[in-house]
Design a protein around this nucleic acid. Sequence first.
DNA 1: ACCTCTCTACTTGTCTGAGGAGTCGTGCTA
DNA 2: TAGCACGACTCCTCAGACAAGTAGAGAGGT
Lengths: 222, 222
Amino acid sequence: MHQVKRSPLADQAAELLLERIRSGEWELGQKLPGETTLAPQLGVGRSTVREAIRQLAGRGVLSSRQGAGVFLVALDAPEEWDAVLRRADLVSVIEARIAIEAEAAALAAERRTPSDLRAIRRALDDRAAHRSEVEAHVDADTRFHRSIVAAAHNPVLGELFDGFTPRMRQAMVEMLRLRGGFGDEADHGAHERLAERVAARDAAGAALESRTHLGAMKAALA
Amino acid sequence: MHQVKRSPLADQAAELLLERIRSGEWELGQKLPGETTLAPQLGVGRSTVREAIRQLAGRGVLSSRQGAGVFLVALDAPEEWDAVLRRADLVSVIEARIAIEAEAAALAAERRTPSDLRAIRRALDDRAAHRSEVEAHVDADTRFHRSIVAAAHNPVLGELFDGFTPRMRQAMVEMLRLRGGFGDEADHGAHERLAERVAARDAAGAALESRTHLGAMKAALA
DNA sequence: ACCTCTCTACTTGTCTGAGGAGTCGTGCTA
DNA sequence: TAGCACGACTCCTCAGACAAGTAGAGAGGT
């Protein structure tokens, strides 16, 4: 089941322009064709092509000067990490999160301190306490998973997890609104088992729990 | 004689919006007022406010969904990814790379196309051909690992891997100069086994090969 | 009481036409 | 030759109209 990607014309036009820029069609600092020329070329109206140009201007690729034209100021935007996440398919994001979190769970099982363990247990209780409201539950859930990642004592993994958070939060809130069923006993049990594996210093077990739990979420969201 | 900076209204509107966003007027993920409401507030036409929104969308601050509204997806362009990697110690980077690459290897085993396989084999041969010069070998090695990640068909994992590349390259070159022994038969065999597991669609085996290989590198670098 | 379906109001998306404002090259003039 | 006026071209802004999509209210059936 291949979900068709329906994106606004302006976005498509921006992407098309970016491709032509990447292909080296115009020199750096050179003037691009005018809006009135570009619009028929891309098969869109003038205002649409203007919005596409604005979008690329916001990313620092183009710059337009009234009366003069539109100029190329950078061959390619230094692909921002957030932009990648925002554009990416949700399944891809979850797969990446599985990679990060399963590894973090294994490392957490090896390295967790008593203080880490207390924080994890506190987050687990807090998560159980917020089962009624959707957003509060999602945030509490995120805090629990964050506490696991924090126990891995790896700043890179932590930063990666934080990068995923906004995108995941949005998706999870949407999913829980549509169909509930993630605040139930089975879900809570999975989290309890994960915390238990970390406490028992069982790296393989912690990774497995994390992987299966997130795998179920991936199946639900896909 | 102060040169007055006359900027387009759309730019001014974007800047004004960004200030209101920074001031915390809207929650993260919340819906902003509609274009028709915003336009009179800012004293510009609707098309102008649209261009301002597009500009901020290009910067990753806003995101608009037809029929629903304009939503705040980031308070501002956050900390750049490169800085995190530069600051982090090498062991953390490798651990993160293990997480990414093991998962990618498993996915690659499931999803690789014949074309992917050809690229992997070509990269493997190329890697074997560059055993004498250190830098050429490291680059060829990187290309091989990249071909595995590419076969996973997950843009997020790919982008993450590319982010690691510069930092890893530097460390590997240094290590190979100090003590060689990564261009030998045993090392090449590990890569051959990984490619073979991917070709055989053995997800668990591919992940394990990747993990052990990178684990050895982590031990050598630590 | 609950679930589902439809319909309506609202929102963003796109196009068109018009006129304003700025820039730059051309050719005329002194 | 130097300076200047003009005109063609460009981006900038607005207004209006309609299409496309979303979300919530309300009717109807179970």
